[in-house]
Computed example of a mutant assay.
Amino acid sequence: MASSSLVLATLFLATFIATSNANFNNDFTITWGDGRGKILGDGDDLTLSLDKASGSGFQSKNEYLFGKINMQLKLVLGNSAGTVTAYYLSSMGTTHDEIDFEFLGNVSGQPYTLHTNVFAQGKGNREKQFHLWFDPTKDFHTYSILWNPQRIVFSVDGIPIREHKNMESQGIPFPKNQPMRIYSSLWNADDWATQGGRVKTDWTQTPFTASYRKFNADACVWASGSSSCGSGSSPSSTSDWLTEELDSTSMERMKWVQKNYMVYNYCADVQRFPEGLPTECSVSS
């Protein structure tokens, strides 16, 4: 197993993994916030802001059915307690699918909590939470979702932090039939976001601002009832990501992150599930 120093060096180098440029004017629409969401310059950058009156949000113009999604974010600086910056994929309706990154703010000097979750057919409750090995407010970092018919992988700067496998063979629903848009929002959730709601939003610090750049989607676009990659839940494509899985090196990196930075795992919360942990918890997910 890799030593801690080697893993740290790998994490440091992975910070500089590049993603291709995108144009937010072409790919996204500001959906709410009354001017608090802004696409800047020629469309290379986007910001969302939150004040006491309102937060803000945007969504992708395209829907996707499987993809490898990358976005660089720089989170709210300073005292971000009570704020949530959400970046996720979601379909619509009561039986929706969803793949979540949520960044829960904290008081100055305390770490952000990176909250992840997976919904399938309207059912979530699959939360895993992490602290990060860097300050996500000082610079941009890349947050990625790999979603293919076999698995969902959450990554930070190219380092996988969580894998959620398709276990339909064991009767567990997996997101594979509903196309999803990309969403992001910055909003106030001080009733629960920071230390269970004990720390409230300090409105003297407004406006709170999160910044975005270098979106990239190597993905199957869904339009008019069909996928750009072909039909069915196993689309025909030459894209490597459609069959991508974690190799031994990636597995070791993920285990290292989970050992050192995971602060909540629903599969270890026996008090929450007194009748027994969810079935998928018997398999790494």
Rank of each mutant, 00 (worst) to 15 (best):
L6W: 11
V7A: 12
V7E: 02
L8M: 13
L8C: 08
T10L: 11
A14Q: 14
S20V: 11
I30K: 07
W32S: 12
G33V: 07
G33Y: 11
D34N: 14
I39A: 03
L40D: 06
D42I: 12
D44A: 15
T47V: 15
S49R: 11
S49G: 09
L50Q: 08
K52Y: 09
S54Y: 03
G55E: 01
G55I: 00
G55W: 05
S56W: 00
Q59A: 14
Q59F: 07
K61H: 13
N62H: 14
Y64M: 02
N70T: 04
L75C: 04
G78D: 04
G78N: 05
A81K: 05
A81F: 07
A81E: 04
G82T: 05
V84D: 05
T85F: 14
Y88D: 08
S90F: 06
M92I: 11
M92S: 13
I99P: 02
I99Y: 07
F101K: 04
E102D: 09
L104P: 01
N106S: 14
N106A: 15
S108H: 08
Q110N: 12
P111L: 02
Y112Q: 06
T116N: 02
N117W: 02
V118R: 05
A120F: 12
Q121T: 10
Q121D: 13
F134Q: 05
P136W: 02
T137C: 03
F140H: 08
H141V: 04
S144G: 07
W147R: 04
R151I: 10
Q170H: 11
P173H: 06
P173F: 07
P175S: 06
N177C: 06
P179L: 08
R181N: 13
R181I: 00
R181Q: 15
I182M: 14
S185T: 09
N188E: 12
D191I: 01
W192M: 01
T201Q: 07
T204K: 10
Q205Y: 09
T209P: 01
S211Q: 13
S211I: 01
R213I: 03
N216R: 14
A217H: 05
V221A: 09
A223Y: 11
S224F: 14
S226P: 01
S231Q: 12
S231G: 07
P235R: 03
S237T: 15
E245R: 13
D247Y: 00
T249M: 10
E252L: 11
W256R: 08
W256G: 03
V263F: 02
N265E: 08
Y266A: 00
Y266I: 04
C267G: 06
A268M: 11
D269I: 03
F273Y: 15
P274E: 04
L277Q: 10
P278T: 08
T279L: 13
T279V: 13
E280S: 07
E280H: 15
C281T: 05
S282L: 08
S285M: 06
